[in-house]
Design a protein around this nucleic acid. Sequence first.
RNA 1: GUGCCUGUAGCUCAGCAGGAUAGAGCAACGGCCUUCUAAGCCGUGGGUCAGGGGUUCGAAUCCCUUCAGGCACGCCA
Length: 563
Amino acid sequence: MDVKKILSSQLNIDGVSQDEIYAMITETANSDLGDFSLPCFRFAKALKKSPVQIAEQLKESFGGCQIVKEVRAVNGYLNFFVDNTVLAYSVLAEARQENFGASEVGKGKTVCIDYSSINIAKPFHIGHLGTTAIGGSLYKLLKKQGYDVVGINHLGDWGTQFGKLIVAYDLWGDKEKIEQGGVEALQEIYVKFHREEETNPELTEQARRWFAKIEQGDERALQLFGWFKDITLKEVNKIYKRLNVTFDSYAGESFYNDKMQPVLDELESKGLVKVSDGAKIVDLEEYGMSPCLLVKADGATLYATRDLAAAYYRKNTYDFYKSLYVVAYQQNLHFKQVFKVLELLGNDWAKDCIHVAYGMVSLAEGSMSTRKGNVVWLSKVLDSAVEKAKQIIHDKNPALKDKDDVAEKIGVGAVIFSALQNARIKDITFSLDKVLNFEGETCPYLQYTYARTNSVLNKAGNAINARIAPDFDSLQSDESKQLVKLINKYPSVIADAAEKYEPSILSKYLIDLAQAYNKFYIGHRILDEELSRQIPRLYATDAVNKIIKDGLALLGIDVPEQM
RNA sequence: GUGCCUGUAGCUCAGCAGGAUAGAGCAACGGCCUUCUAAGCCGUGGGUCAGGGGUUCGAAUCCCUUCAGGCACGCCA
């Protein structure tokens, strides 16, 4: 229930719209002062009265409603005290409904999300965790908001590195070894190629020729290329499954090979193309940007050219309302350029293309480099996290059922959560120790709280459905009030997270909710109470149970029923 | 050099379409399990919100500026 809306609808101030009043009502930091507050200072000039007078007047004219217990005018603030019995009654009823938190604001609109976008034959390392986890969560958040969502894995499946890989395979590759070793085995020969290449430029030349053969459709070249692709996808799909991430399209770079020329033609016909040092560019100087490179001096297309073709393809195919690119902030300029070129081409939908940038992942030990083979494989990080979870289960709850399943959920959840708990723009120095810390503001803490609510609900049996009038007066403590308020916020938190493309808003909220519940749990016996007082507490427990499960699912994280 | 991003407790971060006394977690120290899961809860200490100026009744939040760190800036993606 939107308390601010109820309050603002009861307030009338000359020359100020209801929406403006709504926006000005804040939650009060100090609960002694009330639950919600309207500062009246800004109205002083227009009304030619002091804020103190205005607050007094508003207090007098406030019609009153069930939810408000008391209104006070204090030092120019109009403070509202909410009646928690009434609030708890309606909030807990809402929270028990099936689709609590869902919305239909996106109904009939399609959002494309380009995320994860891995490279073929390259390791899935912790650097890919950010885009995969953020994109995967946005996918679910936007669906929850009613949008049709298209998840696109823009595969990096084009470029001279595939020529290199073929050369490396012919020289040092072993079919069986690679079938078994997968991407890691491919990486080995790739890294070797780069070492050898430094002293033997002939290799570089050979690689170039092989890549040209792929382009020309040479049978053997395509066959090997397809094989590398299969190996990679097979392996990566296992990780996606663990991360609860899905895609609707794997149209990658190679897919756009035959779709760039029409875009280039259009650019030419609109007079946007310039030739500079033999390369074709779009000059963006008047917009304060360096030029967007379209075609190299040797005639080859570039990254930006493919992104332009992809943008058109997505618009034509999906008629998107928004098209998101979950890509690290290193590429800020690139996307600014591409979007500007789309705009210069006269596409009003250019404004709907949004670069959802996120921070860098670095290692405490130094930078990652695929070529040097200095990477932290995500599958290994997931495995260590699961291993750690197993150890802790062994220490704390050796009698637990389905230990392996629970450990998987806890371990993988911890890793995903580490990528989603902070604002996405923040850089991350990856530390396994930190990911493996299971105490405090962590995913295991949320899962533990969920398991705790499960335990209470199971022990309560059918009491929650007893035909006895619940006594909501039993939720008057500060802890209860705090908890009810947070439960009430869930739908707006999802809306906010979806609107800002920021899953961390949800992560932070879930931590707050779990903290509030744990305080409530410690401070209030639930099952010892008589039924009429027990039921509201079970409602609250049930709401927390559902929200944590649903909220974590929106982050791509599973919950164990017990732990 | 230019543009963008970041700077809040020892560490990691919330708070930033301005509102009342700046909040969590980790780490440290001290408490709470014969009672619903102690992966929990309570308490203690810890702050020039990077520095300076400005706007405002009011600034961590907006503007200017300086400093520090990161990223990007033509033929990689």
